[in-house]
Structure formats: structure tokens, C-alpha cells
């Protein structure tokens, strides 16, 4: 790990922490300028995070997406990016108060991993690596956003009419729709992740699907979100039940990412 990248990584952690605190203060003190400041810090953090990833990529001479640390930091980057897009697009700063802690947790998890740069084993030296992992980053980031949106949805039930939460959080119907859109983005990119992974596996191992634990859990995640989409078509499944399902879906995503790599041996385990 280069010094510059190390400095930038620590800066990113500090900025994400400040962002999280500013969003918290915004919802505690109900001052809109705090939300704007938090948004500014989030954008700055994202830029510096991008620079840190670029520096690591240059130092490693490849895309920085091949081990648990690199994927964790990319995951945090993806979540930060997707949540910022949703905050701006739907003018919804409260989303930041829920997504910033998740981003901070993931970057914290990254900080606990080994940050050494290793040369790639031959199987990882493929152009598919970049496409496969980038799509996974966007997918996981989107599912992360749908997770926090669903939490907000469930939390909104308790909001008093005309109060801060009522005026700063979109109507439940719209929240449900935004969460749905986030799942759509995630599912589309998860499909791309599985497809590109299968093509790559076919080139590298001679089998596009071999029920490796990561493959299997990606399929489980895909199936769960497919069920979510089908159930939303049923009138009485929109809303609260769909939100609970989206939360469960993200638990599955986290297991696919951390649990599988840690507990289940396979070609994706980084032991």
C-alpha cells in the first residue's frame, strides 16, 4: 500500500464519519443546511475515495478489486455513489442518515482487512475481472440503498403527520417505489455479475456453473429478489411486507459477500 493511498484511505474514513455525524445532526436538530453540508462531505468523500482507488490501481498495476479489502472499499464506494444519486435525484437527504452509517461500517470492515498488494494468480488475470466485480459493486450498492430505504419505510410508520419526518421523507407509496427502483438496479447488475462471472468461469475453469458457494449464494440472492419483484405484483404485498423482504434480501447480500468468503470454501474464498 502506498503512502498516498494510505493517507487518502484514512481521509475517506474521516470524511465518511463526518458525513454520518452531519446527517445525524440534521435529523436531530432538523436544520436543512446540515443536510446540505453532509451532502457536500459525502460528494467530497466519494471523490477522494475514487482517487484512493485509482492510486491503488496504479500501484497494483490492475483494477483494485481482487481481495476482501479491495472489494469492501469498492462496495463502500458503490453504496456511497448510489445513495448520493438517489439523494440528489429524489431530493431525499434523510436517506443519507441511514445510508452513511452502513457506508461507514463497510469502510470500517475494509480497514480491518489486510491492505497488502499481491500479484494476481493466473486465473484472476482476465479482462472479465473488471466487468464482473464492477457490476457486483453497483449491484451490492443498490441493494444497500434499497435496504436503508426499506428501513426508512418501516420507520416512517411512526412519523407524526406534519412533523419533520413527515415533511422530509417522501410518502410511503413513493418510498416503496424508490426502494423498488433501487432493487431493480441491483437485480439488473446482479444478473450482469452472474452472467459475466459465468463467462469468465467458462474460460478459466472450463465450467460456467459449478455450484461454487459464491455462485450458489449469488443465485440465492437473485432468487430472493426475483420473489420480491413477483410479490410486489400482488396488491397486498406492496409496502410493509415488501420492505421486510428487501431487508431480508440485503442480509442475504451481506452473507454472499462476507459469510461465503469467510465460512464456505470455494474459488472466491480469500483464505
Amino acid at each position: 500500500m502506498t503512502n498516498a493511498e494510505n493517507v487518502l484511505f484514512i481521509a475517506v474514513m474521516v470524511i465518511y464519519l463526518i458525513t454520518m455525524l452531519l446527517y445525524f445532526f440534521f435529523v436531530i436538530f432538523k436544520k436543512t443546511p446540515l443536510a446540505k453540508a453532509a451532502g457536500g462531505f459525502q460528494a467530497a468523500g466519494l471523490l477522494i475515495h475514487t482517487a484512493a482507488l485509482v492510486l491503488r490501481g496504479i500501484a497494483a498495476g490492475r483494477l483494485p478489486m481482487t481481495n476482501q479489502y479491495e472489494f469492501a472499499t469498492c462496495f463502500a464506494w458503490g453504496l456511497c455513489l448510489v445513495s448520493l444519486i438517489f439523494i440528489v435525484k429524489f431530493r431525499f437527504p434523510v436517506l443519507g442518515a441511514f445510508s452513511a452509517p452502513v457506508t461507514f461500517l463497510i469502510i470500517g470492515y475494509a480497514a480491518m482487512q489486510s491492505r497488502e498488494i499481491h500479484e494476481l494468480m493466473p486465473a484472476l488475470q482476465s479482462n472479465w475481472l473488471g466487468v464482473h466485480v464492477s457490476t457486483a459493486v453497483i449491484s451490492y450498492g443498490s441493494f444497500g440503498v434499497s435496504f436503508v430505504l426499506s428501513l426508512i419505510y418501516l420507520f416512517r410508520e411512526k412519523a407524526k403527520e406534519g412533523g419533520f419526518w413527515d415533511t422530509h421523507i417522501p410518502a410511503r407509496e413513493k418510498l416503496d417505489l424508490i426502494s423498488y427502483r433501487s432493487v431493480c438496479l441491483g437485480l439488473l447488475f446482479l444478473t450482469l455479475t452472474i452472467l459475466t462471472g459465468a463467462i469468465w468461469a467458462e474460460r478459466a475453469w472450463g465450467s460456467y456453473w459449478s455450484w461454487d458457494p459464491k455462485e450458489t449464494w449469488s443465485l440465492v440472492t437473485w432468487l430472493i429478489y426475483a420473489v420480491y419483484l413477483h410479490l410486489r405484483l400482488r396488491r397486498n404485498w406492496k409496502g410493509k411486507l415488501a420492505a421486510i423482504f428487501a431487508v431480508a434480501g440485503f442480509v442475504c447480500v451481506i452473507f454472499t459477500y462476507i459469510g461465503v468468503n469467510t465460512f464456505l470454501p470455494g474459488v472466491h474464498s480469500y483464505k
Binding site: W211, P213, T216, W217, L219, V220, L223, I224, A226, V227, H230, L231, L233, R234, V260, L264
Partner: peptide, 24 residues
């Protein structure tokens, strides 16, 4: 029906998850 499809998807997801925990 879609109901049947959902039941099948849930069972398949559970089977896949089980298959990943039990050494094959």
C-alpha cells in the same frame, strides 16, 4: 399461477442455501 412460481423459487433458494452449507 404466480403463487406456485413464488413457492418454487423460495424452495429452490432454500435448497441452494442448504446445499452450500452441507459439504457435497
Amino acid at each position: 399461477s404466480m403463487q406456485f412460481a413464488v413457492i418454487l423459487l423460495v424452495i429452490l433458494a432454500a435448497a441452494c442455501a442448504g446445499g452450500s452449507f452441507i459439504p457435497q
